[in-house]
């Protein structure tokens, strides 16, 4: 398997010989018997695969337990879940923009928020987020509301940890998606009308968006 591929090509009438080592011929690798093709050689899945909710619920419960074992306090636990969410979020950006938007990103604040509320939520949780609101007091702040996040469905919060909302994982996802697409923000989860995610953009983001509108 060490044969090189030789191509003869003509550049401006001059014959040029090009030697391509076997290792650069990825198409040949994927055709060979052993499945050594890299993940990028495979077509992107449609993302319609499904697994049972029980499976996810138990997995998430293990996730929370793992984070809890590693942390002493509720805020620490929330931070860990938030960080995990961010790991998920950065991976979703490319996946969803390539799959749902043919690689085209958003440049307007409202559009990216709608992308999160509709496209992302629908792909990830099978339905849109319930509500998106703009804060009355602070123009940098938006609220995304969801009555019953899927991660909270089977979680009963102990009384001494009543401030814990495991949907911070989802807040982490949203934060990573917004920040990663050029809209740096802090996203937190709160118990309010179900769960409310508070999205607080950096001031520069809102200022830039205004500039964009004026043009």
């Amino acid at each position: 398997m060490s044969t090189n591929l030789t191509l003869k090509s003509y550049v401006k009438g001059v014959k040029v010989k090009i030697n391509i080592p076997q290792k650069h011929l990825y198409f040949k690798m994927s055709l060979s018997g052993r499945n050594r093709s890299s993940i990028l050689d495979k077509p992107l899945s449609k993302g319609k695969g499904e697994v049972s909710l029980s499976c996810f619920a138990l997995l998430f419960s293990e996730v929370v337990q793992y984070c809890q074992n590693k942390s002493q306090t509720v805020p620490e636990l929330q931070n860990r879940l938030h960080d995990l969410g961010k790991r998920i979020g950065v991976k979703l950006i490319d996946l969803y923009f390539v799959r749902e938007r043919a690689g085209k990103r958003e440049i307007k604040l409202l559009n990216i928020l709608l992308f999160v509320k509709s496209t992302l939520w629908k792909a990830l949780f099978g339905k849109e987020a319930d509500k998106l609101e703009h804060s009355n007091d602070d123009e940098n702040t938006y609220y995304l509301m969801e009555k019953e996040p899927i991660v909270n469905r089977f979680i009963s919060v102990p009384r001494d940890k009543s401030s814990l909302n495991c949907a911070v994982l989802i807040a982490g996802i949203v934060e990573a998606v917004l920040t990663g697409t050029g809209f740096p923000a802090k996203v937190t989860a709160h118990w309010h009308k179900g769960t409310t995610y508070m999205v607080k953009f950096e001031e520069a983001v809102v200022a830039r968006d205004k500039n964009l509108e004026e043009r």
Binding site: F60, D83, K91, F125
Partner: peptide, 24 residues
């Protein structure tokens, strides 16, 4: 009723957890 969730949610949640464990 066997309720379903998107498999990518599980894939990525699991992946994030494994990545975190490797870091820890």
């Amino acid at each position: 009723d066997v309720k379903k969730v998107n498999s990518e949610l599980v894939t990525l949640t699991y992946g994030a957890l494994v990545a975190q464990m490797i870091k820890d």
